[in-house]
């Protein structure tokens, strides 16, 4: 394809991506170096019947003017990255130099907002990805065995948790686990504990969110593995049987090599999607016990009084770095494959 034709065809798409993905990333990087203006404080002397006193007052007009003039705020360098709400370098230093052992260090670091969000995001990604894949694979094996007429409806029902809007899916489950809801009430009855609430303790909140994640994500590996099972190389399986391969050998040397590339693909997509976990935290109103990186950004931007652009931008940049680290293996593989094809 000629360069000129290529450029003409790709232009609208490339333009949209540059303007609304690449530039915003730059904009985030710039914003993260700035911080909101402090309020302009003026000293006024007010004299009353009991003498004069000086007062410090916030000059709202001057503050608003300053903010309108320089919307970015004032330059702060890497200050936002290092402050307590993000990497908390000073606080970590104090914790490391003065602590009562490993458990204490962990507990105190976990209390810093950024690390709290990071911990949940990583645990969620690390648990939901493999567990959803295992459940998806088990369901795929099950669907593979049922008579053909049931397959359509079964696949239809199985797709629902994945297709439904994440916020809506989490709300539906949230209402059910409510202590007045059907699952919440049944659990109270089952454990004979009328005080039992999945919302109260941090551990139970984490478990709830992770179970939600598996429920929401499992249909995707299910569909991919099911399609993989349909395209198993039948000839190879038959020749393996004729050659005397037992059941385990057939799984090990025929089925698994066929499914491993699918599993890699599914694992990657799930990891990318799980790392951005956000809506369930809102749906389950779990921000007291579990927050994620995406949620912290949303929370900064959604501030009731001030929108903390600098703080949100710094968290965004740190999140993006995390995404790139997660993606590194794929990027290297894509690059190698392309070079192999080109030569």
């Amino acid at each position: 394809m000629r360069h000129r034709d290529f450029a003409a065809f790709i232009l609208p798409s490339a333009f949209a991506m540059v303007l609304f993905i690449a530039l915003p990333i730059l904009s985030v990087a710039v914003q993260s170096l700035f911080v909101e203006h402090e309020q302009v404080v003026v000293t006024v002397e007010s004299c009353g019947p009991f003498g004069c006193e000086t007062q410090e007052k916030v000059d709202t007009q001057a503050t608003a003017a300053l903010r309108a003039e320089q919307p970015l705020g004032r330059f702060n360098g890497l200050g936002t990255y290092l402050n307590r709400a993000h990497l908390a370098v000073d606080e970590i230093g104090v914790i490391l130099s003065d602590n009562d052992g490993f458990g204490d260090v962990m507990a105190r670091i976990y209390n810093l907002p950024f690390y709290k969000a990071l911990a949940f995001t990583l645990v969620y990604t690390a648990l939901v990805t493999p567990l959803a894949m295992i459940l998806g694979f088990a369901v795929a094996l099950g669907v593979n065995n049922i008579p053909k007429i049931y397959k359509g409806p079964v696949i239809f029902l199985s797709l629902l948790p994945y297709i439904v809007t994440p916020l809506i899916g989490s709300l539906i489950l949230f209402w059910m686990i409510n202590s007045d809801g059907v699952i919440g009430a049944s659990l109270q009855w089952l454990f004979d504990d009328p005080e039992l609430s999945l919302k109260a303790s941090p551990t139970l909140t984490w478990v709830t969110l992770i179970v939600y994640g598996i429920w929401h994500m499992a249909p995707f590996p299910f569909v991919v593995f099911y399609a993989g099972l349909q395209t198993l190389p039948q000839d190879t399986l038959e020749s393996a049987m004729i050659d005397g391969a037992n059941r385990w050998e057939r799984i090990r040397y025929v089925v698994m090599p066929h499914l491993v590339p699918l599993a890699t693909f599914v694992g990657l997509v799930l990891m990318m999607d799980n790392f951005r976990v956000f809506e369930p935290i809102i749906g389950f109103s779990s921000e007291a016990n579990a927050t994620s990186l995406s949620w912290s950004i949303y929370n900064d931007l959604n501030g009731q009084v001030d929108q903390l652009f600098g703080s949100a931008a710094a968290t965004s940049i740190l999140t993006m770095l995390g995404v790139i680290v997660l993606l590194m293996p794929v990027l290297i593989r894509t690059w190698r494959e392309f070079n192999r094809k080109a030569h």
């Binding site: 985030v28 919307p71 956000f278 993606l327």
Partner: peptide, 17 residues
Amino acid sequence: LVFRAMPHITLVSGYLL
């Protein structure tokens, strides 16, 4: 591929201002 993996909310924080 990298853009696909970016959490949408990180981009939103770049749009607002």
